[in-house]
Every structure is written in C-alpha cells, then in structure tokens.
C-alpha cells in the first residue's frame, strides 16, 4: 500500500496514510483482549504474589500483601543450583537439537526438493510425535531407558555404562528427554528457511572455487540464520522452563531437579506462593535477558 502511494507522486510519500483505522482496531480487539486477560493479568498477579509476606501465625498458604524483596533473594540463593541446571540443561539440549535437526531440515528442504512426496512424508514424520501426548512420549522413554531395558543392558555389556550405572534419573536422561521433545520445534523453522534457500548461491560458491565446507559456512549457514535463531529460541525457552522431563516421576531424580520443579514444589506442595512466584519471575527475567543478548549478538533484531 505504501509503495503504491509512493509511486504516484512525491507528495504522497510525506503524507502519512490514514492513521486511525477503526477496522484495524476492531480486528485487533480480540487479540488485545486475549493478551490482556490471559497474559497481562496473570503476569501482574504473579508480580504481586511474589512480593507477598507470610501472615504471622497464619495457616499454611496464608499470605498478606507486602513488599518482600527478600522473596527474590531467598528464592535465588536457595534454588541457585536449580536455576543453573535449568539453563545449563536447556543450553545443552538446544545445541544437540540443532546438531540433529540441521541435517534433517537440510535434507528435507534442499536435497528432497525433487521428490515432493518424500518431502511431505518426511515432514509428517517430524511432526508425527505431536500426535501422541507429550507426557506419554516421555513416559515411554522412561521405560526404554529403565535399568532392565535392552538399551541399558547393551550399554553395560559394552562397558559404556558401569555395572551399577543407570540412565533414568541422571542428567543424561533429562537432557535426552529435552532434546527429543523439542526437536520438532528446531526442525520446522530450519526447514522453512532452508526450503527457500536458492541453490544458485551454492552453485556460485563452487564456481568460485569454494570447497563444499566453505560454501556451507559462508553461504548456507548465513542464509539459514533466521531459521537457526528462531529454532534455538523455540527450543531453549520452553526447555529452560520445562519441569516434566526433569520431574522425579519422569526422567529425572532429586539430583536433576530444574527450576520448574522447584516452582512446582513450592506452589503445589508447600503452598509457598510468594517464593514460587518470585522464582517464576526470575526464570522469565533471565530468559528475557539471555534471549535479548543472543538476538542482539547474532545481529537479527529484525526477526523479532
């Protein structure tokens, strides 16, 4: 629209188009209402809860409004290992997911272009896990990685695992679960950018005597950067807040508890809502800062 206006005359450029469009407002209204009701309100109530103080002599779960900054200090110091674990595990899982997903996405998006049927079949396979509940899939892995499973027995037979070793309840199982569960979130954005990759650029690279590795590093990777950034964000953010994989009931143990598990315990079991809320906000803030730095460093602010 702006371009059409521009093309007719110079005056049209400086004159801004209609600023107030009631139709646009009406169309935006459901979205705004939704965000206000289901995002902003809970967020504000979370912030308020995080500052609540314990009611002196009160029953379990009784809190009064207050300005307890101490909740943040207590939460951050008591649960520091959980905060570190959350981001450490999420980071490792994101890197693994990227390493695993990139070749898959490259194959589907570039190599399989000639066979649309194969392409759509492989895409379906990537999405297929979504047809089964997240919880069930994770439970299935718990079963596959259990002590008497063929996987563990085989690993013990070739002495990769010591005789008294386990997989479930270890950081390995948790990171494995995170990687597995978030791989589609990595593969799909990578696929959408690689699918549009212009092969002629790669041909140009080899015409200019670049080795395949150089072409990949200098042409393919920079061109697929938008996919890499959105894929890593879509993996890292939910993985950092995940509490299912690391839960004692699934792949984790008390030694692998992540921040999400600490929030769950404080909220549900201990009825310690202020600490749970403070931890949630810490999680959100750290993610926001990390993502901000990451996006800035990778020079892709335009994507956001």
């Amino acid at each position: 629209m702006a371009f059409a206006a521009f093309a007719s005359s110079d005056a049209a450029v400086t004159k801004p188009p209609r600023r107030k469009s009631t139709i646009a407002l009406v169309l935006l209204l459901p979205g705004i209402l939704y965000m206000v009701l289901f995002f902003l309100t809970p967020l504000i109530s979370l912030v308020i809860t995080s500052f609540q103080a314990e009611l002196p002599g009160g029953d379990i779960g009784d809190y009064i409004p207050g300005l307890q900054w101490q909740n943040y200090v207590d939460g951050a110091s008591e649960y520091l290992p959980h905060i570190l674990r959350a981001f450490g595990y999420a980071l490792v899982a994101t890197v693994f997911a990227l390493i695993i997903s990139y070749p898959i996405a490259y194959f589907i998006g570039v190599k399989a272009r000639r066979w649309p049927l194969l392409q759509s079949m492989m895409l379906t396979l990537v999405i297929a896990p979504f047809f089964i509940s997240f919880l069930l899939r994770t439970l299935a892995w718990k079963q596959i990685l259990s002590d008497e499973s063929p996987v563990v027995l085989a690993l013990k037979a070739v002495a990769i695992l010591p005789a008294d070793g386990h997989l479930t309840g270890t950081p390995f199982a948790v990171i494995f679960g995170l990687t597995y569960n978030f791989i589609p979130f990595m593969t799909l954005p990578l696929y959408t950018t690689l699918e549009r990759l212009d092969i002629r650029f790669l041909e140009a690279g080899s015409d200019l005597y670049a080795s395949p590795a150089t072409t990949f590093a200098k042409v393919t990777v920079p061109l697929s950067m938008p996919g890499i950034i959105s894929g890593t964000l879509l993996t890292f953010i939910p993985a950092a807040g995940d509490y299912i994989n690391a839960s004692r009931d699934f792949l984790g143990s008390s030694k692998t508890a992540m921040l999400g598990n600490a929030i769950e315990a404080n909220f549900l079991t201990l009825q310690n809502y202020p600490i749970a809320a403070a931890l949630s906000i810490i999680l959100m803030a750290v993610i926001l800062v990390l993502v901000g730095v990451y996006v800035r460093r990778s020079g892709t602010e335009d994507l956001l």
Binding site: V36, L40, T41, I44, S45, I48, T49, Q52, L55, G58, D59, D62, Y63, I64, P65
Partner: peptide
C-alpha cells in the same frame, strides 16, 4: 490501567 485494576483485585483476594 490494568495494573491498578489487578492491584485492587489482588488486595481484596489475598490474606486470610
């Protein structure tokens, strides 16, 4: 605006 509203709400709904 919302923050104020939520504050008012929260003030009524917390505590014993």
């Amino acid at each position: 605006g919302l923050g104020l509203g939520a504050l008012a709400l929260a003030a009524c709904s917390t505590g014993p």
